[in-house]
C-alpha cells in the first residue's frame, strides 16, 4: 500500500516535471540556437505561451479527414507519456512496473505509426509525402535505437531502463563500446526528434519537411497537444542519452539518514540540470553547425550509426 502511494507520488512529480521542463527545454534550445546564429531568439517561455494560445484557438479541420485524424494525437500522446515515465531522471530505484527497453522502443513506434496515418488522412500531397518519409527514416532509426541501447544494457544483464545506469557502474561513455554507441544513439535522437541534419523543425518549406508535413493540417488544441507530445519525446530521449551513457550523480536506493537522502537528492537534481544544459547546448550547436541532409542521404547517416553500434557490439561481445 505504502509503496503504491509512493509510486503514485513519484509518478505525479514526474508528470509535473515533464509538463514544466519539456516546453522549457524547447524554449532554451530555440533561444540558444538563436544566439548562436546571431539572432535574439524567442523568449525562454515562448513554448508555454504557444501552448496557451493553441488551447484557445478554434479547430480548423479538413473535410477529407476521418476519425484517425482526431485519434492520432491522443494515441501518440498516451504512448509518449508512458514511454517518458519509464525513463529514470534523477534516481535509479526500480519502478514497480517493468519497463524494458524493447517496450520503450516499441512505445516510441506508436506515435510514428499514428502520425504517419494522420498524414495520409487529409488527402494532401504534403501529408502523404511526410508520412512516407517518416516511415522510411524511422525504419532505419529503429534498429540503431535498439542496438545502441542493447550494447550498454547487455553486459549488465538487465534490460530495465532504470537498471542500465545501475549495472554500468563506470562511465560507459569513456569505454570504447559506450563511446561508439553514444554517437550512434545521438544520431538516432536527431532523427527521432526531427532535428537538423535529418529534418528541419523550423521550416514549412513544403519539399523538405517531414515532421511538420504530417501535422500540417492540425490546428488549435490538437496542434498544441502534438507539439507538447513532441517536446516530451525530445526531453525523454535526451535524458535517456545522458542517463545511460553518463550515469553520474544519480540517486541510489533511498536508505540511510534523511539528511543523506536529501543531500544525494540535491546532487542528483543539480547534475540532472547540468546534463540538460549540456544537452541543450549540444543540440543547438549541432543544428547551427550542420546543414540538413538530402533525404536519401539519411540512409548514409543512419547506416553510419548502425555500423557504429555494430562495432560497439563487437567490442562488448569480445570483451576487449
Amino acid at each position: 500500500m505504502l509503496t503504491g502511494i509512493a509510486f503514485a507520488i513519484r509518478l505525479l512529480i514526474k508528470i509535473a516535471a515533464l509538463a514544466i521542463l519539456a516546453p522549457l527545454i524547447q524554449g532554451c534550445i530555440k533561444q540558444f540556437k538563436g544566439r548562436l546564429q546571431g539572432r535574439h531568439g524567442p523568449r525562454l517561455l515562448q513554448p508555454f505561451f504557444d501552448l496557451i494560445k493553441y488551447a484557445r484557438k478554434e479547430q480548423v479541420i479538413s473535410r477529407e479527414t476521418s476519425w484517425v485524424f482526431s485519434a492520432a494525437p491522443l494515441f501518440s500522446f498516451a504512448a509518449v507519456l508512458t514511454a517518458a515515465l519509464m525513463v529514470p531522471w534523477v534516481d535509479r530505484s526500480p519502478w514497480p512496473f517493468p519497463a524494458d527497453l524493447i517496450l520503450f522502443v516499441y512505445l516510441l513506434a506508436i506515435p510514428r505509426f499514428m502520425m504517419a496515418l494522420a498524414g495520409l488522412d487529409a488527402a494532401g500531397s504534403f501529408g502523404g509525402m511526410a508520412s512516407s518519409r517518416e516511415s522510411a527514416v524511422s525504419a532505419l532509426a529503429e534498429p540503431v535505437l535498439l542496438l545502441s541501447l542493447l550494447t550498454i544494457a547487455l553486459p549488465g544483464g538487465s534490460l530495465h531502463l532504470e537498471a542500465i545506469p545501475v549495472a554500468a557502474n563506470s562511465l560507459p561513455l569513456a569505454a570504447r563500446a559506450g563511446g561508439l554507441a553514444a554517437i550512434a544513439f545521438y544520431c538516432v535522437v536527431l532523427a527521432e526528434i526531427g532535428r537538423i541534419p535529418v529534418d528541419n523543425p523550423d521550416t514549412h518549406l513544403e519539399l523538405t519537411m517531414i515532421h511538420e508535413g504530417m501535422i500540417l493540417e492540425y490546428s488549435g488544441p490538437l496542434l498544441g497537444l502534438l507539439h507538447f507530445t513532441h517536446w516530451i519525446k525530445q526531453i525523454t530521449l535526451l535524458v535517456l542519452l545522458f542517463n545511460v551513457f553518463i550515469p553520474i550523480g544519480m540517486m541510489v536506493e533511498s536508505t540511510g539518514a534523511w539528511t543523506a537522502i536529501i543531500f544525494s537528492a540535491l546532487i542528483a537534481v543539480v547534475t540532472f540540470l547540468a546534463k540538460m544544459i549540456t544537452a541543450i547546448a549540444l543540440l543547438a550547436i549541432t543544428e547551427t553547425w550542420l546543414a540538413k541532409l538530402r533525404l536519401f542521404q539519411m540512409m548514409d547517416l543512419l547506416g553510419f550509426a548502425f555500423v557504429l553500434s555494430i562495432t560497439a557490439l563487437l567490442f562488448v561481445a569480445t570483451g576487449v
Binding site: 505509426f113 535498439l146 542493447l150 557490439l313
Partner: peptide, 23 residues
C-alpha cells in the same frame, strides 16, 4: 543482438507496410 536489431528493422518496416495498407 544483431539479429534482434534486424528484427527491430523488420518491425519498423512491417509498421510501414501496415500504414500503407490501412492508410
Amino acid at each position: 543482438p544483431l539479429i534482434a536489431a534486424l528484427l527491430a528493422l523488420t518491425g519498423a518496416l512491417a509498421a510501414a507496410a501496415a500504414v500503407k495498407s490501412f492508410g
